[in-house]
Each structure stands twice: as structure tokens, then as C-alpha cells.
Nucleic acid binder design. Structure first.
Lengths: 111, 111
DNA sequence: CTATACGCCTAGCAATCCTAGGTGTCAAGA
DNA sequence: TCTTGACACCTAGGATTGCTAGGCGTATAG
């Protein structure tokens, strides 16, 4: 079915969400749109992944939520980063960099 | 405990193993050593991940196994890529590239 | 008035990697 | 001699994670 839009790589979703929220307060539904948009339609974040992840991040005190109105006048749950969340995001990004480099080392090894 | 050696990113292990085996026939124990070595000690592949993965790859006809002697005169199960395996490896590598780029797009987005 | 987008939620599945245990051989050092 | 460590294989079960597939309610466009 989805040959086109790819699933999120396991273990990276938290980091991606935190990064999007770091750009400014935003509600859940919009997060999935932003991820799809910025990734140039590569990632397709499912709601069944999104909302549990948001609750997970809130429970770990990386995100704070607040009900507010959207531009279109509807209620939505806006998230913003906590200090802990910002710190954690940095750690995760550094970790990602090292991991991506390590993978690249292996994939680029010539026979 | 392991602040140093990182776990393998979920979903990438099959690709990494296939890539190592693509460098030439090799047995399981040596695969984990090679992965650790080439990744400059970043990845620490556990045996409880390694062997189930190898059986998985064999069942999918991406790897073939054969018992042979090592340099040290012991018996070991040497793996080599099948044609299907080589093809799958290429697909996975392309997929990884696109995914890594998509992640980079998101992580590099400035506020 | 009906479909679609918006916006939230949950239960349960499938996959994956790990921990923690096990087997047996062999070489080196106390 | 005996014990430790490296070599080389294996499995069961747990934890985590993202998805599928369902659900709710409102507003807007056709």
C-alpha cells in the first residue's frame, strides 16, 4: 500500500517530535503534518503512533501540554518543550549523529 | 552500564549484517566483532541479537550457511550472501539513505 | 446532507533488540 | 593442575516501539 510514504524508523520518533515542538508551540495533529512536510513527504506519521508518543513524552516531563484555540477556532492541545525536554533533545541529536556516522562507516566499507 | 557502546538502531541490524557478509564469507561470532570494529567501537552487537538475526536472514533466503573450519582450527558456521540477499541489501541501503536524509532535514530545520 | 478535513483517543498486534541464561572447546597463566 | 578468558554456537522471555484499526465529535465544502 504505502510504497511511497515510509514509516518512522523505530527509536527516532521521540526525537523527531521533540525537534518539531522545539520550533515553537504546536498541537499534535499539526506535528504529524509538519513532519510529513519537512521530510518532503518521506515520513508518514500515523495517529496511532503520534498520540501515544505525545503522552509518553509528557509523562517523562519532556513536553508540557495546554488546551488552546487554533487559528481555525477549534480547541487543540498545544505542546511545548520543558527544560528537561530541550536537554534531552540535544542528547538524542548527538547520539543520532554518532549512530548515523557509525552506520555510514559500515555501509561505505569496500570489499 | 554501557554508556559507551551503543545498541543497534532498531531496524538496521539486518542491513548491517548483510553488508558485513557482503564483504566476504564470515561466521557469526566474527560478524559481531567486525561490526564493532568498523563502527569504531560505537556499536556493540549482543549475541542474543546476532544469532536470531542470522537465522531470520537465512529463513528469508538472504543468507546461506555452511560449516567450515576457522583459522584457529575450530568449527564455525560461515555465511555468504545469496542473490536475493544482495538485491535486498541494495534496496535497504537506498532506503536507509532516504531515511537518513529525511531525518537530517527535520533535525536541521531552524526555528 | 454527506463527505472530508480537523483534532483527539485507545486496544492490541508485530517486529525488533536486549538480558540472561545455557553448551562446549581451547590456550594461557597462577 | 586448575581456573579464567576467548572463541563459537544457541534459546526463552522481556521491554519497547510504531502500526493497524477502530472510535469520538466538530466544522466546512460539495
Amino acid at each position: 500500500m504505502n510504497q511511497d510514504k515510509a514509516a518512522i524508523l523505530k527509536g527516532t520518533l521521540d526525537m523527531l517530535i521533540l525537534k518539531i515542538v522545539a520550533l515553537g508551540p504546536i498541537h499534535g495533529y499539526a506535528i504529524s503534518q509538519r513532519i510529513q512536510q519537512i521530510s518532503r513527504d518521506h515520513f508518514q506519521l500515523q495517529q496511532g503512533s503520534l498520540y501515544p508518543a505525545l503522552h509518553r513524552l509528557e509523562n517523562r516531563d519532556w513536553l508540557e501540554a495546554e488546551w488552546r484555540d487554533t487559528d481555525t477556532g477549534r480547541e487543540a492541545k498545544f505542546y511545548k518543550l520543558t527544560k528537561k525536554g530541550r536537554k534531552h533533545l540535544e542528547t538524542e541529536m548527538e547520539s543520532w549523529d554518532r549512530t548515523a556516522q557509525a552506520v555510514a562507516l559500515i555501509l561505505r566499507t569496500a570489499p
